[in-house]
Computed example of a mutant assay.
Amino acid sequence: MDPEAVESVEQVPHGGVDDPTVLDFSANTNPERPPGVVGVYDAALSVARRYPSDYCEFRTAAAETVDCEPRSVIPTPGGLAAIRLALSVTVRPDDRVLIPAPSFGEYAREVRLQGGDPRHLHHDELLDADPIDYAVVVVCTPNNPTGEAADPDRLREFAARCRETDTVLLVDEAFLDFTELPSLAGEPGVVVARSLTKMYGLPGLRVGFAAATGDLRERLDTARMAWSLGTPAAEVGTHCLEQTEFVEKTKKRVDRERKRMRMSLSRQFDVYPSDAPYLLLDVGRRDVSDVVDAARAEGIAIRDATTFRGLDSHVRVAVKREHENDRLLDALADV
């Protein structure tokens, strides 16, 4: 991290509310969690007097999830920690980094913290860019907040072009497990960042990982903090990654509810197509704050998406369970 950059870099706004009486559609986490999590956590807490091991079981479970070698997996305390770790070993001061827009605001912030120069390009155009002038290119798939996933064939072709120019490709797959698309983990010259926060509904536990091969893998493993996951986080993460039935059930629910919500919301708003557990809405000539306030008056929080670069008339809503989604649809029906 560049000490001189820290003074000029600000925090990035995020969704999520602390009030337990509010139904939160502003953060895109699963409202359900896998069975058995509490028991696994309690059992792990009893052995937390010792330092964590080498995370062998976690690496194996993660590798099976993204179809790579266990050695390629680098445990991190959340997906954002994987992104910071990747940028810390690939970006030098004044390096240019290509990032999508609109997209997750932390990319630009993390690049700046390394002293790098973030350059924005519309996410739809990014895979057509020439990577030669960049130290790193960041791809978010599915993109947040728009929801579209990158075509895997085009993404692999772009990864090949990045290798030709010695440009590292950082792929944020925080929401990819809500799709049927393959991970890019194990592809040479690529760092994949994964989060267990979204699918498994455990944002406060902070579990994730990076995946890379060759020299990239060695640099990530050297630079990562020792004991990067606490024992409870590692044990719960391993348990969650093994819950394939839970994942399939969640994907079916999200797909069904997303289609239903999009059809209903399209009567009033321009709704973006999505492969993710959220929908981006263009509210048109309405004031975004009025839409956010109208939902809040009904005890519901939605995300003001004007904090994303290039969006000025948008809100983002999560896809939750049927009865919760019904409350959102009712709250926005007359806005």
Rank of each mutant, 00 (worst) to 15 (best):
residue 6 V to S: 13
residue 148 E to H: 11
residue 90 T to Q: 10
residue 212 A to Y: 00
residue 16 G to P: 06
residue 313 S to I: 01
residue 227 W to I: 12
residue 235 E to D: 14
residue 31 P to H: 14
residue 290 D to P: 06
residue 125 E to S: 14
residue 11 Q to Y: 12
residue 333 A to Q: 12
residue 88 S to L: 10
residue 37 V to C: 00
residue 281 L to R: 00
residue 48 A to G: 13
residue 176 L to N: 09
residue 45 L to S: 14
residue 228 S to R: 09
residue 106 E to C: 05
residue 210 A to F: 02
residue 72 S to Q: 10
residue 301 A to V: 09
residue 150 A to L: 05
residue 77 P to S: 15
residue 223 A to Y: 10
residue 96 R to P: 07
residue 13 P to V: 01
residue 268 Q to M: 11
residue 62 A to I: 08
residue 276 A to I: 05
residue 174 A to H: 14
residue 217 R to K: 08
residue 212 A to N: 00
residue 282 D to R: 13
residue 131 P to F: 00
residue 228 S to M: 10
residue 85 L to V: 06
residue 298 E to W: 08
residue 326 D to L: 04
residue 132 I to F: 05
residue 51 Y to C: 06
residue 198 K to V: 00
residue 100 P to D: 02
residue 261 M to V: 09
residue 224 R to M: 13
residue 150 A to P: 03
residue 330 D to Q: 13
residue 123 H to P: 05
residue 58 F to Y: 15
residue 68 C to Y: 09
residue 21 T to S: 14
residue 248 E to R: 14
residue 201 G to C: 00
residue 234 A to Y: 10
residue 307 T to K: 07
residue 329 L to I: 12
residue 308 F to M: 03
residue 228 S to N: 13
residue 15 G to N: 02
residue 192 V to L: 07
residue 75 P to I: 11
residue 252 K to Y: 11
residue 54 D to W: 06
residue 89 V to S: 11
residue 176 L to T: 09
residue 213 T to Y: 03
residue 137 V to D: 02
residue 186 G to V: 11
residue 243 Q to D: 12
residue 97 V to R: 06
residue 280 L to C: 12
residue 95 D to K: 12
residue 37 V to Y: 00
residue 55 Y to C: 02
residue 121 L to P: 02
residue 247 V to P: 08
residue 108 A to E: 08
residue 196 L to F: 00
residue 335 V to T: 13
residue 258 R to F: 03
residue 120 H to E: 12
residue 142 P to G: 09
residue 143 N to V: 08
residue 41 Y to C: 01
residue 148 E to M: 12
residue 97 V to I: 10
residue 313 S to K: 07
residue 212 A to K: 01
residue 153 D to V: 14
residue 66 V to Q: 14
residue 231 T to S: 14
residue 290 D to Y: 03
residue 14 H to E: 11
residue 139 V to P: 04
residue 138 V to K: 04
residue 112 R to P: 05
residue 183 S to G: 03
residue 117 D to M: 07
residue 330 D to F: 11
residue 250 T to F: 06
residue 273 P to Y: 06
residue 56 C to N: 10
residue 23 L to T: 11
residue 74 I to M: 04
residue 123 H to F: 15
residue 209 F to D: 05
residue 220 L to V: 07
residue 323 H to D: 15
residue 238 T to S: 15
residue 63 A to K: 03
residue 73 V to T: 06
residue 71 R to T: 14
residue 91 V to D: 13
residue 190 V to M: 05
residue 181 L to V: 09
residue 13 P to C: 03
residue 65 T to R: 15
residue 302 I to N: 04
residue 185 A to P: 05
residue 270 D to M: 08
residue 275 D to E: 14
residue 180 E to M: 11
residue 262 R to L: 05
residue 5 A to K: 01
residue 154 R to E: 15
residue 11 Q to M: 03
residue 227 W to M: 13
residue 147 G to P: 04
residue 191 V to P: 04
residue 296 R to I: 04
residue 195 S to I: 04
residue 273 P to K: 04
residue 165 T to I: 04
residue 103 S to T: 14
residue 152 P to W: 08
residue 115 G to A: 05
residue 93 P to S: 10
residue 284 G to S: 08
residue 46 S to R: 15
residue 45 L to I: 11
residue 133 D to L: 09
residue 145 P to M: 06
residue 28 N to M: 09
residue 124 D to W: 11
residue 223 A to C: 10
residue 170 L to A: 07
residue 206 R to N: 07
residue 76 T to A: 07
residue 183 S to A: 09
residue 185 A to K: 02
